[in-house]
């Protein structure tokens, strides 16, 4: 469909509200929704869910677009759909907002755990955290379950201080934290000593660049479980390499 024909259809739709015209326009621009859904797929939300969200945004965009304001529809709808998808990611990551008090206590708990570990070499118990922070054990337990909401739009420091990127651009990035290890041969040797399941986690996360959620899906376990397993494996490798 040419831009002129599309503009004409938009005008006719605005005049008549004819659903058939709207649907013809939606079908014509569905490729935009598909491209944007694919761009954001594989980051913890299914492609089909993203396509549905993008399609709803497309329909809404078609219904509101005015061709006489001077923009092409694709110029108008692309940032609109992108924004809707980002909002969906935000809502998907946490459907319940944390009370401010709980959020503040959660941060205090994390800091207290780190301080205690630094001073004593072991992690504290809930009872000890309760004494340190002067809060009830129930509140400490609840705060420990409350992870701070993270926006996928939040900038992630690049290191050079200039090219900060949003979080969703760096999730499952190819960059490997194993680059910190200087002796790659020693690392390879230690990885071979891991059991097959642990090697599979490492391969998926650091060779294939899968996110924890993707790795969990492939292995049939939860993202949280992959996170714990990964932490254990890395600790094991670090210990072996620093002996």
């Amino acid at each position: 469909m040419t831009n002129e024909k599309a503009a004409e259809l938009f005008r006719r739709y605005r005049q008549t509200g004819d659903i058939k015209i709207r649907n013809e326009l939606v079908e014509n621009y569905m490729y935009v929704a598909e491209i944007l859904a694919k761009k954001f797929a594989g980051r913890g939300v299914e492609y089909d869910d993203l396509l549905q969200v993008a399609s709803e945004a497309l329909i809404s965009g078609v219904e509101k677009f005015n061709p006489d304001l001077g923009n092409q529809f694709t110029t108008y709808i692309t940032p609109t759909i992108t924004g809707i998808i980002r909002n969906y990611f935000r809502d998907y990551s946490r459907s319940v907002r944390l009370p401010r008090k709980l959020y503040a206590l959660s941060a205090k708990v994390r800091a207290a755990i780190n301080d205690y570990y630094r001073d004593n070499g072991v992690k504290p118990t809930v009872h000890q955290l309760s004494q340190i922070l002067g809060e009830s054990e129930e509140d400490i337990i609840e705060a420990m379950e409350s992870k701070a909401p993270v926006s996928l739009d939040a900038p992630v420091k690049s290191g050079d201080g200039e090219n900060d990127a949003p979080l969703y651009d760096v999730i499952a990035d190819d960059a490997s934290s194993f680059e910190r290890f200087e002796d790659a041969d020693a690392l390879r040797t230690e990885i071979k000593k891991l059991d097959p399941t642990e090697q599979r986690v490492i391969a998926l996360r650091y060779v294939e660049g899968k996110s924890q959620a993707e790795t969990g899906k492939i292995l049939g376990v939860s993202q949280m479980f992959v996170s714990r397993a990964e932490r254990k494996i890395i600790a094991k490798l670090k210990e072996a390499l620093t002996k």
Partner: peptide, 23 residues
């Protein structure tokens, strides 16, 4: 997590146990 606290587990062991139960 509450029962882990009653058992006086440290926070790391408690997290491991919570993950194992849910898994």
């Amino acid at each position: 997590g509450g029962v882990c606290a009653a058992a006086d587990l440290d926070v790391d062991s408690a997290e491991d146990f919570k993950v194992c139960v849910t898994e």
